Amino acid sequence: MRNLPTDLLRTFVTVVDSGGFTAAAQQLGRSQPAISLQLKRLQDLVGQKLLARNGLPIELNSQGQLLYQYAKQILALNDQALAQFETTAIIGKIHFGIPSEFATTLLPKIVGRFVRAYPNITLEVTSALSKELLADQKRGQFDLILALHDDPASAGANLVKEEELVWVGNGRENLEQLPQLPLIVAPDGCVYRGRALRSLQASGQPWRVVYTNPDWSGITAAIDEGLGVTPLAKSTVPENLKILKAGGALPELGRVGVSLTRPRGRHTEATQLLADFVSASLTLTR
């Protein structure tokens, strides 16, 4: 009777979910050769090749897709079973404030792992502009806040990383032929909007705001339709949009700071665990 070791299955799932061996090695705290060896052991065990290609992104063949579904179920049951016998289970509810573009790109990477590891912690997520999340009248509502800072130094000890800002479009623009650069931005108070307008003014590039929306899904839909371009933190660019090379009509945008803030009196063990998860995920993104 053969058994499927959960450590091999977890490595396999992590390689698929993270999109490559290097990212999986970083997440699991192992070397890339060790990850490759574990995947080879799993393929030898099932007697099937699992990958259609080893490049980026990772692509599964039909056998790999089948095993991936089984592996997700097996690991979920494994984690649930262990959680039932955890005598030091951490219980809590965390109200997490986060900009909407990070909620779209960052949360899917961490929520699943976090909830599986700590099933007794409940996450309540609110998306808004960083300015709103950090406002005195609102910040006290949150246990943890992820926010952007126009000046990274202003984040102080709460700074997690600096993010490069890039121009984003649908990849079919012909900006050099337009008399004015069409901008799609959030309302006043958005860090991205302020940086874009200052950079355009400094470069002398004519521009006009063609669409304003506080909702990230509305902004991405407008970009996908070709209405204009927007500035964005590089690590949050969705797969359906393209990073546009700076130059000509598109001035350099520089960098912003990303912080994690825990309002006074909110330093619980559960909040610290989530902060560690988020910080690690931000560090791994480029």
Rank of each mutant, 00 (worst) to 15 (best):
D143H: 05
L159R: 03
Q137H: 15
E162G: 09
L144A: 01
I145S: 00
E132C: 04
W167P: 03
L144S: 00
E163V: 09
E163C: 12
H149D: 11
K161W: 02
Q141L: 12
Q137E: 15
A155H: 01
K161R: 15
E132R: 04
V168F: 05
V160Q: 13
D136N: 11
D143R: 04
A147M: 09
P152A: 09
K161T: 15
Q137Y: 13
E163I: 06
D151A: 11
E132D: 14
E132A: 07
G156P: 10
A147D: 07
L133H: 03
R139Y: 01
D151V: 12
I145C: 03
Q141D: 13
L148T: 11
K138T: 04
L144P: 00
N158C: 13
V168P: 02
E163D: 14
L144W: 01
G140E: 01
N158T: 15
D136M: 11
L144R: 01
L146T: 08
I145K: 04
E132Y: 06
D136H: 09
L165R: 02
L133R: 00
W167R: 02
S154V: 07
S154N: 11
V160N: 05
H149G: 09
D150G: 13
A157G: 06
P152I: 10
N158S: 15
V166P: 05
L133K: 00
A157N: 12
R139C: 00
D143I: 06
R139F: 00
L133M: 10
R139P: 01
Q137M: 12
E163K: 05
I145V: 09
D150Q: 13
D143N: 14
G140P: 00
K161D: 10
L134Y: 06
D136W: 06
A135N: 14
W167A: 02
D151M: 08
I145P: 00
A147Y: 02
E164W: 03
A135E: 12
A153H: 12
V166Q: 06
A147C: 08
E162A: 09
D136P: 03
V166A: 05
E164V: 14
L134I: 11
E132T: 12
A135T: 07
L146V: 14
L146Q: 09
K161N: 10
G156L: 06
R139E: 02
E164R: 10
R139S: 01
N158H: 08
L134D: 07
